[in-house]
Structures are given as C-alpha cells and as structure tokens.
C-alpha cells in the first residue's frame, strides 16, 4: 500500500481502524465487503474515496454513519467512538447517500430544508439565514416553494446536498454526489464542494466513480478494491509514484507507425485532417527521445508534441490492475 501520511497524536475528524464487514446470508456464502480498512482524516480535509463497483466504498461509508454494523474494527468521529456512541457521533455527521432519493419528493424545496434541519434539532428561526443562503448558492430561489418531485435531477441533487448541509455538521459523507448529472451541473456541484472545504472548513469524504470530481475536489485519495485499501496518498504524490506521462504527438501525414506501436504504450491513434494524432504513455525522458529519434529515422515530420498531465483515471487503473502490488 502506498502511504506517505504522517501519523501523530492529533484528534482526527475521522479515524477508521481495521474495519471489517462480512455479509452473511441465510443461504449462500458469506461475502467479505470490507477487509481491514484503516485510514484517518484531519479536520478540514477533503478525501476522495475511489474504487470500482463492489469495492466496499458504500459499505465503509455506511459503517461510518452507523447504518451498517461492522463485523470488526473501530470508527471514531471527532474522537467519539461511533460504534459505541452512535447518537453522539451522528450529531456531527451528515451524508448524501442516494443522491436525489435522499429528499422527500412530496415536500417543497424549503420544507425539505426545514425538515432536515429540524431532524438535527435546529429550529426554523435558527436556520433561516442558512436556508436563504443555500437557496441562493444553489440557484434554487425560484424553486423554493416547488415540490421536490418537480425539480430537475440536478436541482434535486443540489437540494439533497443542501439538506445534508442544513444539519449544520462539520463532517460530511458524500456517496456519488454527481452521479447522473450533466456536465454543467456536475461542475457547479464540484465547485460548491470545494468552497465548502475552503471557506467553511468542512471535513468531506467523497466517493465517486468520476475521476474528474476526485481530481478537482480532493487533495488526497484513498483507492479501495475488494474491500482493501490499495493506496492512500496525496493526489500529487500518486502522480509522482506512477510517473506516468501521457503525450500527444501531432504528425504531418497519415502514418501507420507499426514499430512505434509495437515498442511503446500507444493508447490512441487517429487520423484528422491529413494528420496523425497519437497518444502515448512514456515513463521517462529516455523513452521520449527514443520515440522522437524513431520518427526522425523514418523522416516523419513532427508538427507538435503536447504533454498531457497524468490523470487520476490512469493512476486508478494502474493501481486496480496491479491489484495492490504497486511498483
């Protein structure tokens, strides 16, 4: 496992220690969904929780908020044992677990916000300025008195996040908050999540399939597969560890470049407007110059080379494919 995070005696916003969850069924084999997961989050941190389907992300998140009983392990939220004193721990926790299904479709936007504030013991009077601010920030002012069922999916998702925020907790769990949203709304929501952390100091654990979300919003990422943590590090550090550099070569003319394709990790090759556009992953500068020399040898005219940054998606695929055995 990759980890360069320092461990100290500070009180963490969240500390998960050797968490295990095995689902037993009346018929059939038991399934180990979470297998010794450990990680910690400092106050104000925004951490991405990545993993393929069935990796154990949602089970871990539900264990943290007391909705699933773990088989073994410890969870503490702001120093409170969440397994022994769930009520106290939940007091400082809110979550968006099923996106737009986490709200009451029969209630209006405002009624939903007031209800969820009340569910956390916050009176209408106390939260009124926050409701106004949330309606404005989420662009829901005109829909304040519209039933939630009549809102677009993006608006419902925003409202679900609003309902989690109106509880006034410092710790926020977001399970796939941008799932099913269009590009524009997803971007808006990402920007909002980022602001939450920067301006309000919220501690956020965010699980997503969307690497763009994690890359844009999170400083640190935890990659989980088959119930085990495979990597836990800053996004920047993971980039350095993998040192994977993606380049785009724009070459004049149409070329097959079979030898280059055989010898290098060419991920994409297209022909556009009489040009060959080739994307290739090069792990070091030697490989880069070798490829340029090969093109020169064949008298192929190189028009432009772009260095495309290593994306979270490539890092994620590398880690998952190596199944935890990291170079």
């Amino acid at each position: 496992m990759i980890s360069s995070l320092k461990v100290s005696s500070i009180t963490y916003a969240l500390k998960v220690d050797n968490l295990e969850k095995t689902y037993t069924q009346w018929r059939g084999e038991p399934t180990k969904a979470v297998d010794g997961v450990s990680f910690a989050m400092e106050e104000g941190e925004v951490v991405g929780f990545l993993g393929p389907n069935g990796a154990g992300k949602t089970t871990t998140i539900k264990c943290i908020c007391g909705l699933v009983e773990p088989t073994a392990g410890k969870i503490s939220i702001f120093g409170i044992d969440a397994l022994k004193d769930t009520r106290k721990a939940v007091k400082n926790t809110s979550a968006v677990l099923e996106g737009n299904r986490n709200i009451y479709w029969r209630l209006t936007t405002r009624e939903n916000l007031e209800f969820f504030a009340g569910l956390h013991g916050r009176s209408k009077k106390e939260v009124e300025p926050e409701i106004i601010s949330l309606l404005e920030r989420f662009d829901l002012v005109e829909k304040e008195n519209a039933p939630a069922r009549k809102l677009s999916r993006g608006m419902q998702q925003k409202l679900a996040l609003g309902c989690a925020l109106i509880r006034g907790t410092d710790f926020l769990l977001l399970d796939e908050p941008t799932l099913g949203l269009d590009v524009k709304t997803s971007k808006e929501l990402r920007r909002f999540i980022l602001k939450l952390a920067e301006e309000e100091g919220k501690t956020i654990l965010l699980s997503s399939h969307d690497m763009n979300v994690v890359e844009e919003v999170c400083e640190r990422v935890i990659i989980i597969n088959k119930g085990k943590v495979l990597a836990d590090d800053l996004v920047e550090n993971l980039r350095n560890v993998f040192n994977v550099h993606l380049y785009e070569f724009i070459i004049k003319g149409k070329h097959r470049l079979q030898r280059i394709r055989d010898e290098h990790n060419v991920t994409d090759m297209r022909y556009v407007n009489g040009k060959t556009i080739m994307k290739v992953v090069l792990n070091d500068s030697n490989s880069f110059y070798e490829l340029v020399d090969q093109l020169k040898e064949k008298n192929i005219e190189l028009e432009k080379v772009k260095n495309l940054d290593t994306h979270m998606e490539e890092i994620f695929m590398n880690i998952i494919e190596e199944n935890g055995v990291v170079k």
């Binding site: 539900k62 908020c65 007391g66 909705l67 939940v90 979550a95 677990l97 986490n102 569910l119 509880r167």
Partner: peptide
C-alpha cells in the same frame, strides 16, 4: 422505497 429511511437514522435522536 423512497430512499429517505437512512436519513431518518442520521439524527442525534434515535
């Protein structure tokens, strides 16, 4: 069925 049951568990009450 509506997906709101879990939210009712996320309360400082029981």
């Amino acid at each position: 069925r509506d997906g709101t049951l879990e939210q009712l568990y996320l309360t400082p009450s029981t």
